[in-house]
Amino acid sequence: MAVRAAVLHLRDRRRAADRRFGVRLLGAAVVAAVAAVPFALLLILVEGRWTPLRRVDVSAAERLHRTAVTHPAWTRTLRFLSDWVWDPAVLRTIVALLTVWLLYRRAWRLAAWSAVTAVAGGVIGLVVKTVVERARPSLEDPVAHAPGFSFPSGHAMTATTSFAVLLLVLLPLVPRAWRPLCWCVAVASVLGVGFTRVALGVHWFSDVVGGWLLGLAVVALTAWAFEAWRADAGRARAEVTEGLEPELVDARPEP
């Protein structure tokens, strides 16, 4: 009887695991759809040269370019922010240093998530740029130049993935009273990156939106994978306002 009870218990556990696996697969499909469908729709409109979208792109580029040409000090500020403060190389370096710190703290899976999210974002963005081959704006008396193709904006996408990584990793170490400020700084920075790229005339408005959406898709999928691991490891589901791994605040590096 004891053996039979053990067998039945094991079978019930396997069935429960199968049900959880099915739920996770469905959840993955939903996350992928919610995150990727808006980008796919935008890509279709860009590739199809949809007139209303093209009109918005041209109008935003021309208006912001006039301001940039007539206000040199304003333009220098935008270039400083775009080329130094929010430059993809700078943000990737910060994420790389964060990943090294996580390895030092022996937060292996969180370090892997940070690295994979950053690398996946960069590679996917480059691949999409190469496939779409959209030309950058061509304006009279340009105030800035950028190499390569235009869609999606690498600056916008890198800012989205990088600030998401910083937030979701470091939030457990931030006092709760300060967390809303951290979210505001991150969101303002991501929006600011996009604005500088359009204002400097090196990206269309839709390029920036595409970078934001694709970056969110990457973060959503990798974060879901991390949450699936937490569930398999028997850890409680973490709220987004607490970061991916709230236990990090109690972790100590081993000697």
Rank of each mutant, 00 (worst) to 15 (best):
A68C: 08
W204P: 02
A6G: 08
G192D: 04
P88M: 07
L126K: 10
V202Q: 03
A40T: 12
A164H: 01
F226I: 06
V3R: 14
A238Q: 07
L91K: 05
L97P: 05
A5N: 15
W113S: 05
K129T: 04
G194D: 01
L42I: 06
V100S: 04
V34S: 09
Y104H: 09
A61T: 12
F205G: 06
R136K: 09
E62Q: 15
A223N: 02
E239A: 12
L168C: 01
W183Q: 04
V193D: 03
L78T: 05
D141P: 07
W224G: 09
L221M: 11
P147G: 13
D18K: 07
W84A: 13
P52H: 03
V116H: 04
R235I: 05
L173G: 00
R134S: 09
S162G: 09
A233T: 10
R136L: 09
A164C: 11
V116P: 00
H71F: 13
V56E: 10
E247C: 02
A217Y: 05
T77A: 15
L221W: 01
T93N: 08
R13L: 15
V131L: 14
L248P: 03
F39T: 01
A33F: 12
A164R: 00
V187H: 01
S206L: 04
D83P: 00
L248T: 03
L173E: 00
A96Q: 07
V69A: 10
L168K: 00
A177D: 11
T51Y: 11
T222P: 01
V240R: 07
S82F: 05
V143T: 05
A238M: 08
T67P: 08
A35C: 12
A16L: 13
V23S: 14
A223M: 07
L200E: 00
S138G: 09
W224D: 13
L81M: 05
T70W: 11
W113C: 05
T93R: 08
L10D: 15
